[in-house]
Nucleic acid binder design. Structure first.
Lengths: 292, 292
DNA sequence: CTCTCATGGTTGACTGAAGCAATGAGTTTA
DNA sequence: TAAACTCATTGCTTCAGTCAACCATGAGAG
């Protein structure tokens, strides 16, 4: 991590060096940025956003005012406070700055291989998500599948169960078979999204007679505790009723305790279980069902 | 990307703020770091590594010398140059600095959720790999499959072909079926690695009689041009011979031009082709074979 | 209504980081 | 051996940013 910090400090340094021909320091640029994006802003707000010293900010604003980039005026509500907004000249200065920065980044990105940009942006998003999880309630959504979801399902099952329970090839193939046999004409699949990215899934499979089967319920560790498991199961049962089923069954293993709680809450009851083994690991297969 | 830069500047700032009780500036810390890691270093080398002004560096070194952290001595080979190395006190100062930095990072990481650390480090590695690809020749390897590879195969096929050719659910299910039907007792799979990470694959499927089939040849865009496709196909044919096959066949589509070149180079010839359509997109299915 | 105190902004003085340029010691080359 | 060059040092300067004193305004108590 420290190696990365050293490295990235240098990257940022290189990008900023490219902007040295413009007459604004980094901090001044940030001020312009904030004011440009807010339209009109109290200086106090500006100060706290950029974590600047009041005196320093005052001087910067005085200079900007002198250069005709901004207009400062007293707040009508509280004459102690000042409001700041950009003049046309200020907006132009901001846009020049913005353009210079965009150019630098474009130049950097242009030197990258095909898929590099995407990987870069993915990784950056991941870092932000980890270090500074978006505060407010995360937006969740249960939706029908799209292209790409099936391979996502296989991949995440493989990765997560390998990590959490050590299940290997047999399990991956089992998942692949379910996905391969999935028939959109009579089966169904829902994907749970958190903030626009897949975070869980469940399959509904139409069995013979009046029975349906729930399969491959998964919720990403990072998305647990949001009630997605419950909603996925509910969606599945609702669909089963609409599909004329009288009963839904599912297979699971005793080690999947959090899934079990979801099944119980949805009305499933344990019908039978038997011990088996996979790759030398003891597992207890369970069969659950619910009457609709 | 700019949002990330702003964000990460703040992260680095926070980490450095935690070290403010120590009497060294960021640059001084970097100097200590370089000298500590190099053992003994010419000041010129130091200057170019850290990209410092000669005067500024001279002053820093003078101060360090005064504080008894380093020893400066003239180079025996060229008395204009100076050599710098740490005194025991200097090493101790460096270690204190190092410890403070480690502590800060540990504290930051401790506040993260379970899988966060891993995602963070993965993402950081990805960013470095993209922005500053390890120079020397990349190490490549063709190896038998491990746990997790099957789901990787499904996932990358789904993602890459969706991106490059717009193939969707049908193709994902086709791949899933191949993976589900894969029988390690008579079939085979090889994974190509670049720098220790999966970058390609190929399946060998034993067909009836004396025929084998090559399936799901894939090389990541970032790993193309390294000859991995050729090596995967060779591995597959070698195995087919060892498995007593007289002939290996494969299906492909005419739009996969780079794969075609690999097949031709390996001795495959086009047997037949027919037009079809998938999701409304025209495709030409081709059948190739090679006699062993 | 006015006095007091809190808040917000401004200004002057100051510090530390860092760059520039002149200087001098030492080295290489014509 | 003199000229050209390299390298470290030092004085001067700039710039970013902090601190503290000060002034204007607003809010609440008597």
């Amino acid at each position: 991590m420290r190696a990365f910090n050293r490295f990235y400090t240098r990257v940022i340094g290189v990008l900023q060096a490219g902007m040295h021909d413009l007459p604004y320091s980094l901090t001044e640029g940030r001020v312009l940025y904030e004011v440009a994006h807010a339209g009109s802003l109290e200086t106090g707000e500006l100060r706290s956003r950029l974590d600047l010293d009041a005196g320093y900010l005052s001087r910067i604003l005085t200079r900007f005012d002198g250069d005709g980039l901004i207009i400062r005026e007293r707040s009508a509500a509280d004459a102690r406070k000042h409001l700041v907004r950009l003049t046309p000249a200020g907006r132009e200065a901001f846009e020049a700055l913005d353009r210079a920065s965009t150019d630098d980044i474009t130049r950097l990105l242009a030197g990258l291989p095909e898929d590099g940009r995407e990987r870069l942006l993915d990784a950056m998003r991941a870092i932000r998500d980890v270090l500074d999880p978006p505060a407010g309630p995360r937006t969740t959504l249960i939706r029908p599948p799209r292209d790409g979801d099936l391979s996502w399902v296989v991949h995440r099952h493989g990765v997560l169960y390998a990590r959490e329970y050590g299940w290997g090839r047999d399990f991956e193939q089992l998942v692949a078979r379910v996905v391969a046999d999935f028939d959109p004409a009579c089966d169904a699949l829902w994907i749970a999204e958190v903030d626009g990215r897949p975070a869980g899934c469940v399959f509904y499979i139409r069995k013979d007679g009046t029975t349906g089967q729930l399969r491959l319920l998964l919720v990403e560790p990072s998305a647990r505790g949001l009630g997605l498991g419950r909603r996925l199961v509910e969606e599945c049962l609702r669909h089963a009723r609409a599909d004329g089923r009288e009963r839904v069954v599912l297979w699971t293993r005793d080690c999947l305790t959090s899934a079990r709680r979801v099944y119980e809450a949805a009305g499933f009851r344990l019908d039978s279980q038997e011990k088996g083994s996979e790759n030398g690991i003891e597992v207890t297969e369970q069969m659950w069902s619910v009457d609709l």
